[in-house]
Amino acid sequence: MDFKGSDTIPGPRTEDHLPHTAQAAVKIVIVGGFGVGKTTMVGSVSEIRPLTTEETMTQAGIGVDDNFGSETKTATTVAMDFGRISITDQLVLYLFGTPGQERFWFLWNGLFEGALGAVVLIDTRRLEVSFDVIGRLEERGVPFVVAVNSFPDGPRYPIPELRTALDLADEIPIIECDARRRASSRDVLMTLLRFLHSLARAKARA
């Protein structure tokens, strides 16, 4: 581990500090294939310049740091972008944009656990990337909405057609977005929150 030494560590700018009243955080994960706009979406709504965290994984999906002495496994470093939105003086929302290699998304222990929900960003040029991730979110019971990024050279499908192609239940929201625009990315997050709220209401009634 090439640790830089404590004097050279650049910390957050003073204006990026959370208030001392910050009590708890929640997280939302943005998933999607290579180059679909995850980093763009995180950056367009984040109040801080997006940062990158990383994790070292073995093929078996276990953090390698406690595997010293055991036989060598191929380790891969996976980097993930994230941003932050202060909700109140007490509550902070973090947004994580998963890296492009789908097989690592679910190996990152603790990324999806506890997340309020997920946004599946869809590139209509490569829909197949989304099948696997949608299946795995369903398996794990992570609620999600689907956001279709409008790339100029991407084929445009009517929403019902996309729903059929992705085999999505009727209640799962699908919306179009432009991840470069803050208001549009915010609307995607609002759609997820409204969906989560409707699920909560339905459960409370049940």
């Binding site: 640790f3 965290t53 953090g63 994230f82």
Partner: peptide
């Protein structure tokens, strides 16, 4: 996550 980012250390 921010600590990991600023310290450039894995989670």
């Amino acid at each position: 996550a921010e600590l990991s980012a600023y310290l450039s250390l894995p989670f």
